[in-house]
Design a protein around this nucleic acid. Structure first.
Lengths: 354, 354
DNA sequence: TTGAAAGCGCTAACAG
DNA sequence: CTGTTAGCGCTTTCAA
């Protein structure tokens, strides 16, 4: 019996020497299912066995194989993996969101499977396709723009009961996925209204140079709409795309000056604080007085804007909260609760630059 | 036969209606293994069958189940998942490293499983334990300090052939895991040497307020050692721990002033650029002239330091490259190549603040 | 070039 | 409270 063909075949395919449930069971003098139960519902095992199992567990250094677990419970849909797709992890705005998501997931038994799309919906689709193979228990994507194929994948997943959450966006015209974010056009309107209220004319929106940064463009559209509404002249300009957004802002200054080197606009709202700080420092370097000669408004409330002189007026956004809320929502959904869209609050922070 | 008990039992446990290899095979009039082959080695399948399979594939919308695949190939050790453990994703230094890692992994068929440890070795251990359950093909951890249990887990993994890479560190006294980073004490020494060379006396190292930021402390030790070596007075101070490092630098200014409000130190090297910028702006706000009255040196070369006036002298570090190199190294290791430690270059960038 | 059989490590379902 | 049996969806091995 010790050299039965079964045994031989078995060992030929064994994973490299890691203890399995069966090994632990043998050491504890029970069967695998009892150990499995002990691991998941310790109360359902007698105290005696529990102790023996506990001992066997540490003696063998057992690490449960989650692929096997997920496969076996495929019906109950529980890989407990959360797939998150983010445009760029190095972008501090998304980095904090990912951290928020990780924080919310901490201790929930869920793991984070992360993909970066580089602001491309095509790459998002490719990543999504790859991540789907793990059958994540929940999916978090950034924004509401996807390729048709990606949308189809997301819809299929949702149809199977997998929660799908779109973060950073909040828009009526959506596909019905849970949205956690805010309305960027509304922010743009508020930015224009603020500048107008402060008495500025000749407005400009300095848009992100990243063509696929849809949310920045939407803020721009809101900005222009509001200016039009209040009958104030406003233009949209795109910042040059460089690797460094602050430098990009600095270089964009040229677009904001008239032929004589004076300010061509009275106030400039920027797609983000990096851009705004670049413009602010560039403007000061050529002797323009902020906000008297040119007012500057940012977006994002990054740490450095607060420290400048004049301090940068900006829009504070719930960077970390969006991730955290997404994490909590998805955990609730996995728990069987229904989750609603969440419109998270943002605040226009008037400081000294407007 | 159509109502055989086998069939009934089968359907009772089926995952929620997703197409399997068997479904595709049925549609193509072949068996599952042929489809599996087509997916992995298309040349080994006849052109005719290949076409039929391709059609069946798209007709069914098949998504391969990676848990099943990984389980079946457990011996060949191929989940093609990379587990990465990072102190804090929101910290821009690590965010860029993660992005570098994601970039390197792009197109390799590897997925990124990310954990954040919040600078705690205990949390690192817990995360590691959880991630190990997925049997990642490679493991990336930050730094060389781990709990004993975590170290044991990593050693076990390595013994099973899983590459383990420690990033951001490069130190002789290690556990033999592949290290990709640099020697932080050497950076600290260079920082002191630079300040001394510029003729500064009464040096200070403003350390990170994060107790577990070992690398910042090591730079501090190198700094003090070098100052001692050159017989220049130097002290180490810890910045107050606040949520915002720049603000923390600003508040740390008080520690750097003497009773009369003048500078108590001639030059201050900071654990990072955030701190340094905070000090710089704070110093200017109280009328101190940088670098004449107090010289400031940062670490990290973040975008804003470059834009300030005076521009911040700093140490440029390969944030993105470390992640990228780790990704490439682990891919090479998975490919069977042996990988060596990598000491990545850093540069002291003298600008105007020293 | 294709297939049959067996098994990866775990858990659901049903007994006892 | 514990065990038996079957099966998750895929790939390895061996055979044709």
């Amino acid at each position: 019996m010790s050299t039965s063909p079964l045994r031989k075949t078995r060992s030929a395919r064994r994973g490299l020497g890691r203890a399995t449930l069966a090994d632990v069971a043998r050491a504890a003098g029970v069967t695998a299912i009892t150990v499995s139960r002990y691991l998941r519902e310790p109360q359902r095992v007698s105290l005696q066995t529990a102790q023996r199992i506990a001992q066997a567990l540490s003696a063998t250094g057992y690490v449960p194989n989650k692929q096997a677990g997920a496969l076996a419970s495929a019906g109950s849909g529980a890989s407990r993996m959360v797939a998150a797709l983010i445009p760029n992890i190095a972008n501090s705005i998304f980095a904090e969101t990912v951290q928020g998501l990780a924080d919310a997931l901490q201790g929930s038994g869920c793991e984070l499977l992360l993909g970066s799309t580089d602001y491309s919906v095509e790459r998002e689709e490719a990543q999504l396709r790859a991540l789907m193979g793990w059958f994540p228990s929940a999916i978090v994507v950034t924004g509401r723009r996807h390729t048709d194929a990606a949308r189809a994948l997301l819809q299929q997943a949702r149809a199977r009961g997998t929660p799908v959450i779109e973060i950073w966006d909040q828009h009526a015209a959506s596909d019905g996925f849970t949205q956690i974010g805010f309305d960027h056009a509304a922010v743009g309107r508020a930015m224009a209204a603020h500048l107008i209220e402060r008495g500025h004319h000749r407005l400009a929106y300095l848009d992100s140079g990243v063509a696929e940064d849809f949310r920045a463009h939407e803020r721009g559209e809101g900005f222009l709409a509001q200016a039009r509404h209040q009958r104030v002249a406003a233009r949209r300009l795109a910042a040059p795309r460089t690797g460094d957004a602050m430098q990009s802002g600095r270089e964009a200054l040229a677009l904001l000056l008239d032929a004589a080197g004076g300010p061509a606009f009275g106030a400039v709202a920027c797609a983000n604080d990096h851009l705004a700080c670049g413009v602010l420092l560039g403007a000061q370097a050529v002797g323009l007085v902020v906000p008297r000669e040119i007012a500057l408004l940012g977006f994002g409330d990054f740490a450095f804007g607060r420290q400048l002189e004049p301090a940068l007026s900006t829009v504070q956004v719930p960077r970390h909260e969006i991730g955290q809320a997404a994490g909590r929502a998805l955990l609730a959904a996995l728990d069987g609760q229904t989750v609603a869209d969440q419109r998270l609050p943002w605040t226009l922070l008037p400081r000294s630059s407007t």
